[in-house]
Write a protein that binds this DNA or RNA. Structure first.
Lengths: 197, 197
DNA sequence: TCAATTGGCATACGAGGCGTATGTGAGTAG
DNA sequence: CTACTCACATACGCCTCGTATGCCAATTGA
């Protein structure tokens, strides 16, 4: 029976990721002391270096976890819209909603790109943009969206706009009103992708 | 005569900003050692702390300088388009072109937001988005753009898309082709803002 | 069951970066 | 000419990171 051993290791990894995720998501990557947040998980930096190599490696693991969760949430929304176009729009607005959460905003959109570089180059992450790219391609095949666009490029631009929208809402003094404005503007931009009858 | 004194001070500030700008733009903010780049300017950290308070303060000064230069370049392009709509589109593509420069990309779009937070909250910067907001407002008045949009929000979203476009081009193995794709997709998004006849 | 070995994790150490407190010398005012 | 201001340098301590090393429990093979 070699389960307990494996389980302990998995638990250690999970505890480190959870502690780091909390620290990165609140005080930020640069301010997060490895001694501090490993101690808050009842461990030391020794465990961290053993499992993740360095601080960046741990950040990558945290990002992979969050990205997985985001993909799940996008896919949940994905199956409830009447038309494919509506489906696509819902996906985008879900993305904005997720980007409203401070932890996601901080880790995925601020510290992550600053420390690891362009998200498009991340090996594991970006599961949700892949989904958007997929939908765009199908919408083109169905003649709903203008054909001369590169789907992946387009979905990246949309991601950029989404995260700006989310930041604007999050930093607003009146999130309700700002949210309406941002979503309106965002949907209007998306209209540009549709074929006119 | 108290000019020489003032001039020496201004020169010191300029040297520090230049050295920091180079260091931040190449190896990045986090990796840039204050001892190193102040020494490369023939100074020490003493001067830095005296003039800018801390490392963040210096970054702010660097950003203010770059933002000023960007605004100038946007305004230069601003006066050469036949229609106001074209003018607006040119402004956006100029923005993308500037974002292609590694120094601007790194400082303004990666390290800057990570260290100082949402650019929309920066006190001095964002002169160029102000210009875009201005044009959007006029385009609405002229009936060229749909009226239900908030101009500033919209220009922020466009900024987000622009910087993504730029990053995509910059990290591409075939910048020429990627540039075409990105600009096409970007213009298509902008079309969504126009009133249909 | 027992020895050998693996490997998960902690401890110890050194290097470097930051911020502050303090020193110094040149310019400036009265 | 004296005293003060202020731009900038120097010196010190703290914190954080990365590595090298050590220890102990779990696993494996006989």
């Amino acid at each position: 029976m070699h389960r307990p051993r494996k389980e302990m290791i998995a638990e250690t990894r999970a505890k480190l990721i959870a502690a780091a995720r909390h620290a990165f998501g609140t005080i930020g990557y640069a301010e997060a002391s490895m001694d501090d947040f490993t101690a808050s998980a009842g461990l030391t930096r020794g465990a961290l270096y053993h499992h993740f190599g360095d601080k960046k490696g741990l950040l990558q693991a945290v990002i992979a976890e969050i990205d997985g969760e985001m993909a799940v949430r996008v896919n949940e929304v994905a199956s409830k819209a009447p038309t494919r176009w509506q489906h696509f729009v819902d996906e985008c607005t879900t993305y904005i909603e997720m980007a409203l959460e401070p932890e996601i905003q901080r880790i995925m959109f601020r510290d992550g790109p600053a420390v690891l570089g362009d998200p498009a180059q991340w090996p594991n992450a970006s599961a949700c943009t892949a989904s958007m790219t997929n939908h765009l391609t199908r919408l083109q095949e169905e003649g709903e969206v203008v054909p001369e666009l590169d789907p992946e490029t387009t979905s990246r631009l949309i991601n950029g706009a989404s995260s700006q929208a989310a930041q604007r809402i999050a930093n607003s003094t009146d999130p309700e009103a700002t949210s309406k404005k941002a979503i309106t503007a965002f949907k209007q931009l998306l209209e540009g992708l549709r074929k006119k009858p």
